[in-house]
């Protein structure tokens, strides 16, 4: 198993062809392919972070009177974005939740409160997990990195 290298010069007396020994290289490649195939991870999974920090629990440093509370309530009718005393209902578009409008509303709130990093997602019992994940994903896209998932009954809305 060898490959010859031709200098292209035919005028010399002695041939300058040299054989490359490719056996060790092929051995190395075969070993690497075998190792990488054994250790390969075919299913790429990731995680979405959520906290269970409820209202008034430990871990909230800011005094309650200075807090700006932002809650996204998820129910059968759609979303309800509660920012302190203001409520902004976002009804469903037909049977689908309006994630686009939710994202727009959250971005507006982020622009008006740039220091605010946390948002609570309050869900009712019958809401499916996929809807909650998409809601949390929308909140993360709107630059709210600290997300808590809580029960709508305990959110005090």
């Amino acid at each position: 198993m060898s490959v010859s290298v031709d200098s292209g010069d035919k005028g010399g007396k002695k041939s300058v062809n040299a054989d490359l020994n490719l056996v060790p290289y092929i051995d190395l490649l075969t070993c690497m392919v075998a190792f990488l195939l054994i250790t390969a991870v075919w299913s790429q999974l990731a995680r979405l972070e959520a906290h269970q920090k409820g209202q008034g629990q430990a871990g909230e440093d800011t005094p309650p009177e200075k807090q700006f509370k932002l809650v996204v309530v998820v129910n059968d009718e759609g979303f309800n974005v509660v920012a302190d005393q203001d409520q902004q209902p976002i009804p469903k578009k037909g049977t689908e939740y309006d994630y686009e409008k939710l994202g727009t509303e959250l971005k507006k709130l982020k622009d008006s409160h740039p220091d605010k990093g946390d948002v609570q997602v309050a869900s009712e019992d019958q809401i499916k997990f996929e809807i909650l994940v998409r809601t949390m994903d929308t909140a993360l896209t709107a630059r709210f990195p600290d997300i808590s998932l809580i029960d709508a009954g305990g959110a005090g809305i």
Binding site: A46, R47, L48, A50, H51, Q52, V133, M136
Partner: peptide, 8 residues
């Protein structure tokens, strides 16, 4: 306290 959800 820190619950992570597995996603694709």
């Amino acid at each position: 306290q820190n619950v992570n959800f597995a996603v694709i």
